[in-house]
């Protein structure tokens, strides 16, 4: 459903410098799959999602949704994607219902369908009781639930969720997790970026770990455990993100280039090591 092929993005900074935010990134996400795109701040996660959606133009490579390239057919891509950016806002003076129906309109959903979907989502995300309230009276958790509903109101087959639990309390986070599981059960292709790695472990089927724009490692949790030797994502993340690349550079100078070697050097045992290869 989602295809990313050799995607790169270079930002030109004032003063003539440039920053390679995403570097030759490739991966795929199937329908009914939740893909965790993980990495530290500045790794290129949000930039990748924005390129997939067509909000940013790639410097090279392409992204496609259901066969539509985001650079060639941005409207077709946008029509198929529900986008939840981090810190998305709401229209303050509109009521929750007006806000959601407005976006349903923008996506070309008929009024009748939109109202039915609104009812369904209000039930799913538990915002029936504040459906007629103005958006500026909502709490952070309520706002995020409305935003999740906004992304889903046109029933897109693909969801891009950029840190959807950012700043939420335990209960609201639980609602979001249930929501993502619901998306997966509905057969949607989901890309999730989050800093809550325990949450990602529970929700995501596959993971891609980004560092400085490069996909350092990709696979299911079992595959990652096998290849890194780290039992949890947190440990993998720490080793890959903070220590790995820096160490890899050092090791590259010393003639050792593989990630596995770097990981071993950083502390985790690789499966091959465990197996005694």
């Amino acid at each position: 459903m989602i295809q990313v092929h050799r995607l790169s993005k270079r930002f030109y900074l004032p003063g003539g410098d440039s920053l390679l935010a995403v570097d030759d990134l490739s991966f795929e996400v199937s329908a009914g799959e939740v893909y965790g795109l993980l990495g530290p701040n500045g790794a290129g996660k949000t930039t990748t999602l924005r390129m997939i959606l067509g909000l940013l133009t790639p410097t090279s490579g392409q992204a496609a949704i259901a066969g539509f390239a985001s650079s060639d057919s941005p409207d077709e891509v946008k029509r198929r994607v529900g986008w939840v950016p981090a810190n998305a806002g709401l229209y303050q003076t509109l009521s929750v219902g007006e806000f959601l129906l407005f976006f349903a309109d923008l996506y070309g959903t008929s009024r009748q369908e939109a109202k039915a979907e609104l009812k369904h989502l209000a039930n799913l995300l538990r915002f029936d009781d504040f459906l007629h309230q103005r958006c500026n009276t909502l709490s952070t958790g309520q706002r995020q639930r409305v935003n999740l509903a906004r992304a889903l109101i046109h029933r897109p087959p693909v969801m891009l969720l950029d840190e959807p639990t950012l700043g939420l309390d335990v209960i609201s986070s639980q609602v979001v997790r249930e929501y993502i599981q619901h998306l997966r059960d509905q057969g949607k292709a989901v890309i999730l970026t989050t800093h809550h790695l325990d949450e990602a472990e529970r929700i995501c089927g596959r993971f891609g770990l980004l560092h400085r724009g490069r996909l350092v490692i990709e696979g299911t949790l079992t595959q990652l455990r096998e290849s890194t030797g780290c039992p949890t994502l947190v440990e993998m993340f720490l080793k890959l993100s903070e220590v790995g690349p820096a160490l890899r550079n050092d090791l590259a100078h010393a003639g050792v280039a593989s990630v596995e070697t770097a990981i071993q050097a950083a502390g985790c045992q690789s499966s091959r090591s465990k197996r005694g290869d």
């Binding site: 092929h5 050799r6 090279s60 490579g61 392409q62 496609a64 066969g67």
Partner: peptide
């Protein structure tokens, strides 16, 4: 810009 591999070739659409 790199072309997509054949399995990624996008559908071309003409919107009326």
């Amino acid at each position: 810009m790199d072309p997509l591999p054949s399995r990624f070739v996008p559908i071309s659409v003409t919107q009326p």
